[in-house]
């Protein structure tokens, strides 16, 4: 802390102009997110799902009959289905769990570290910070299903034959077409998780205990799926954010049925608007005491 260099150097540079915009903050946020060991642990856990499925099927030998998730019995014939099966297995719990951790941590995590106050007096701007946090969670929503799909395809390719894929409609398409559809499925799942991320972000503004927001988000996803399975609540089903989660099967039809993709996108956009607005309102009025 020498006083020699007080009035000197780059500090004198004009602060205006050329400043980092929101993109710069987003870049910094993503760097922070993907520099965390926890983020990689989450992605690693997701990558483990296709690996476990593929190894288990490989070791058990013959095609399992009857029970088990859809597509499981097709893995021995075509390694392509490792990725699809893994996505199917990951959707109800594992993916929501990881998204819950990232989205629930967004604001509450900063608050618990005390870094929230320093970001705000930087000043990051409350709405800008919220936006960047949401975008970072959205990027994770892209990364998570992509991890499952890519690792699934690689391990499927390594352990099983890969060839033309039979779709639900009975039509058979080449592996290139099938991989494109797999990417579309990953995109579908990403869209599916966007509404939930908004819920997690809102919950994250309510507390300074990140674990609370994470758990609440994941639990909401489970509760929503349970409600979706109760016929007594049928009127509610189209409004549940998990309602279209398994609709990615529509991308495995010929011709591709895009209806559920569109319905899902509209629904998730609705959740994003409602919970985004709640998060903004809550965050703007929040006294930052941590």
């Amino acid at each position: 802390m020498s006083s020699r260099e007080v009035h000197d150097g780059p500090l004198v540079l004009d602060a205006r102009g050329g400043g980092g915009g929101t993109l710069s903050l987003l870049g910094s946020e993503l760097l922070t997110l993907f520099r965390r060991r926890r983020t990689w642990a989450l992605l690693g856990a997701l990558a483990l799902i296709p690996i476990l499925i593929a190894v288990a099927v490989r070791l058990s030998g013959g095609p399992p009959t009857g029970r088990g998730p859809a597509f499981l019995d097709q893995i021995t014939n075509n390694g392509f289905f490792v990725g699809v099966t893994a996505i199917l297995v990951a959707i109800p719990l594992f993916l929501p769990l990881t998204i819950g951790v990232v989205a629930g941590d967004a604001i509450a995590g900063e608050a618990s570290h005390g870094t929230l106050r320093y970001l705000l007096i930087a000043p990051a701007g409350r709405i800008r910070l919220l936006l960047v946090k949401y975008l970072a969670a959205a990027v994770f929503c892209v990364a998570a299903p992509l991890t499952v799909v890519v690792v699934g395809t690689l391990i499927g390719w390594a352990l099983f034959p890969i060839g033309p894929v039979t779709l639900l409609s009975g039509a058979t398409v080449g592996i290139g077409d099938a991989l494109l559809r797999l990417l579309a499925i990953a995109a579908y799942v990403t869209v599916s998780l966007l509404g939930m991320s908004a819920i997690g972000l809102f919950l994250s503004t309510l507390t300074t205990v990140p674990v609370g927001a994470m758990a609440a988000t994941a639990i909401l996803a489970v509760v929503s799926q349970i409600m979706d399975a109760l016929p007594q609540l049928e009127w509610l089903h189209p409004w549940l954010f998990t309602h279209y989660w398994l609709g990615f099967g529509d991308l495995m039809r010929e011709p591709v049925v895009w209806d559920s993709f569109a319905d899902n996108a509209v629904l998730q956009a609705g959740y994003l608007v409602v919970f985004g607005a709640l998060a903004v309102s809550r965050f703007l009025t929040k006294d930052v005491l941590s």
């Binding site: 540079l13 205006r16 050329g18 400043g19 980092g20 915009g21 710069s24 922070t32 870094t115």
Partner: peptide, 30 residues
Amino acid sequence: VEGPAFSPYLSGEANLRRFDAADRHAPRGT
């Protein structure tokens, strides 16, 4: 304010860069 606070999993330098990026008037070049 009320003691320093940083992300423990980042280096000191990375923490400063992060807070600096949060300020939209802080020039990235310098």
